[in-house]
């Protein structure tokens, strides 16, 4: 009797487990591709004139997300002189956007979000009102100034 109840409970939970029929695997794969595309844009476009001044490397990190599970996604390490800035993907299942990368350096932290396609934005402020600016070569410079030592 108790086992019947347990089975019925778990079956009900399973049926309700994915009410929106979201393909979390596809969401994860799109996110990993978007991250790789962004890194390529940074390397080949935004930093193309500064190639001799910066060293860029990638290394996979493990991310664990609710609904999506565990997966590998690359972090980007940008080294200038003795300073390093890390672009660290935080996940695809976030509020209000399709993914988030935290950019950290010795001077602080900045957040960039993926809003689909090649559209990435820098979060300037969350409160009292949300302010985003599109990620471009210019705004990337602002991000680096913000997170690196003065």
């Amino acid at each position: 009797m108790a086992q019947d109840q347990l089975r019925a409970f778990l079956q009900e939970k399973k049926q309700k487990a994915n009410p929106a029929n979201i393909d979390w695997g596809a969401k994860r794969d799109a996110w990993i591709k978007a991250v790789n595309d962004l890194y390529r844009t940074i390397e080949e476009d935004y930093l193309k004139d500064a190639k001799h001044d910066v060293e860029l490397t990638r290394q996979d990190t493990t991310v664990r997300e609710f609904f999506i599970g565990v997966y590998q996604v690359p972090e980007l390490f940008l080294r200038v002189g003795d300073e390093e800035v890390i672009f660290s993907p935080q996940g695809a299942n976030i509020v209000g956007a399709l993914g988030r990368i935290d950019v950290t350096g010795l001077g602080g932290l900045a957040t960039i979000v993926w809003q689909g396609g090649n559209h990435w934005s820098v979060v300037v402020s969350r409160t009292p009102s949300l302010e985003l600016v599109e990620l471009t070569a210019d705004t990337l410079t602002d991000v680096l100034k913000q997170v690196m030592r003065p």
């Binding site: 009410p19 929106a20 979201i22 969401k27 997300e65 609710f66 609904f67 935080q90 996940g91 299942n93 976030i94 509020v95 209000g96 956007a97 988030r100 957040t111 979000v113 979060v123 969350r126 409160t127 009102s129 949300l130």
Partner: peptide
Amino acid sequence: RLFAALERGESLAEPRYFAKTKEEL
């Protein structure tokens, strides 16, 4: 409310939650 919206993949208007993960929430 928030976690149900996240599970359904819905976007939320409140800026205080913007770009946060479930763990951060």
